[in-house]
Amino acid sequence: MSISREQVQHIALLARLQLDEDELQNYTTQLNSILGWVEKLNQLDVSEVQPTAHVLPMANVFREDEVKSSLPIEKALANAPDKKESFFRVPKIV
């Protein structure tokens, strides 16, 4: 499978990464070479193999429904690039 420039652009949009012309060019080349390299995996027959998402055979890890203290508002907002009153603020959405 190879990946086109347009696909790279679409992926960049999904990932919210602005790419300039050079980056677009570079990533198209590099992603193609990485994906070409990854093709090796197709040599393996995995039709009968179960996927491993977690290496540890664990299940049912829960916390009890108990309220713990939240952050003081100054700490919650301390790192905010922009804020207004007790809100985080972002530029207009559309």
């Binding site: 602005q18 980056e23 207009k92 959405i93």
Partner: peptide, 25 residues
């Protein structure tokens, strides 16, 4: 000027090339 361009520019300027490469991949 808007949210989308904020996201796109922030992540373009904030991440280095290898990080962007792996995010794309």
């Amino acid at each position: 000027k808007d949210l989308m361009s904020m996201y796109m520019a922030t992540r373009q300027e904030g991440f280095g090339p290898e990080v962007k490469r792996r995010i794309m991949l």
